[in-house]
Write a protein that binds this DNA or RNA. Structure first.
Lengths: 211, 211
DNA sequence: GTCTATAACCTGATAGAC
DNA sequence: GTCTATCAGGTTATAGAC
């Protein structure tokens, strides 16, 4: 047989396969949970024999761990917009937009994250205690500074952050419920914009930065 | 042996055992998911031999179904406060209080519900399409009436309801994360009150019914 | 109605040929 | 590096004694 164009080195091929497996795993874990997911199902979805999964990821748990860690890294990047603005309306508004965009584009990842936390974070407890704790404290400090400067109402920063996380992630984690209540159809572009606008309107007014 | 006081009829005994099993099942399902939960673990937690579980509930799925249906019924009862008030501040405020109380008292149930919805509602899809849909439409109508009467800002009722669900249930579903960020301790009485007050303050002001 | 012992099945993981 | 065949362990569910 004529050799097909092999632009892929071994390293590139490995990265491609790992990416394929991780994408399939995220989907299956999000739909069936860790216990309900099977390596066979992930392999089928990735288009690879089951044994290959164990070649790239020695155990089911190591594969799951990689999925969760990737989600967490991705999740942190949305936080940058918080720091880039020193106006609460702009900072919190942009954070809502960023988190809603993640909920829309990566609902599976959000679901895996939610399940992991609900199961008492068996694999990412250390991240909660270090990275997430530090991130939360830093953002709370920013909010407290805005409050001290009289730019927003004196609300509890922690509970405000929980409200932001809860509200934005709800559109990913409960997407099936929202879809059902929407007549069985996913939210369209206009509905996603309306959702963002509603959330920003209520929260920004609620903390005294608009109107 | 002297007969111990048997105030229990067979029917009462059956109800007691079923209650015991259902409580254990809710806990185990919430902590391990459907796939991760085992009948053995539920039996141990209920203090019964595994075979007895299959006597009361023929299959693991039937037990799980009963758990989810119970949660849903319980969940609906919090909605009553919504109808009993015709003032939005009172109605929505009381609804937030009621849902927060459920999150505090029944975190396991909330987690099972969340997981069930995330897995595309394999056993309660019919409830979503009927009971929940009707409930949501009814409450949206009430909100729209309040808006028409000029008692609150013109916000989208659906997105407001999602925000209420998301925010209140977050304290149950993500209780482990909140606990970790709280220094490893569950929220105490004062912190729960602060959480309720924060949520009510932001949302009620955000929809234009206070201040 | 209750419980022990067992059956039937499925899953994660691996050995070993290619 | 890849894949088929297989093993070892654990799970649901049930048969059958009490």
């Amino acid at each position: 047989m004529a050799a097909q164009p092999r632009t892929n080195s071994k390293k590139e091929r490995r990265q491609e396969n790992e990416k394929l497996i991780l994408a399939a795993a995220e989907k299956v874990f999000s739909e069936a949970g860790f216990g309900g997911a099977t390596m066979q199902l992930i392999a089928d979805m990735a288009g690879l024999p089951k044994a290959n999964l164990h070649y790239y990821f020695p155990t089911k748990e190591s594969l799951y761990r990689q999925v969760v860690e990737n989600i967490f890294q991705f999740w942190l990047q949305a936080a940058d917009v918080f720091d880039d603005a020193d106006d609460p309306a702009e900072g919190i508004g942009a954070y809502i937009d960023a988190k809603m965009e993640i909920s829309r584009r990566h609902p599976s990842g959000s679901k895996v994250w939610a399940t992991e936390v609900m199961h008492r974070a068996p694999v990412i407890q250390d991240y909660l205690e270090t990275t997430l704790m530090e991130w939360t404290e830093g953002r709370a400090a920013i909010i407290n500074r805005w409050i001290a400067e009289g730019r927003m109402d004196p609300v509890d920063p922690d509970h405000l952050l929980y409200m932001l996380w809860a509200t934005t992630q709800h559109y990913a984690d409960f997407s099936h419920q929202i879809e059902t209540l929407n007549g069985g159809k996913p939210l369209d572009d206009a509905q996603w914009e309306a959702a963002k606008a509603s959330i920003k309107r209520i929260i920004l007014k609620g903390i005294g930065v608009t109107e």
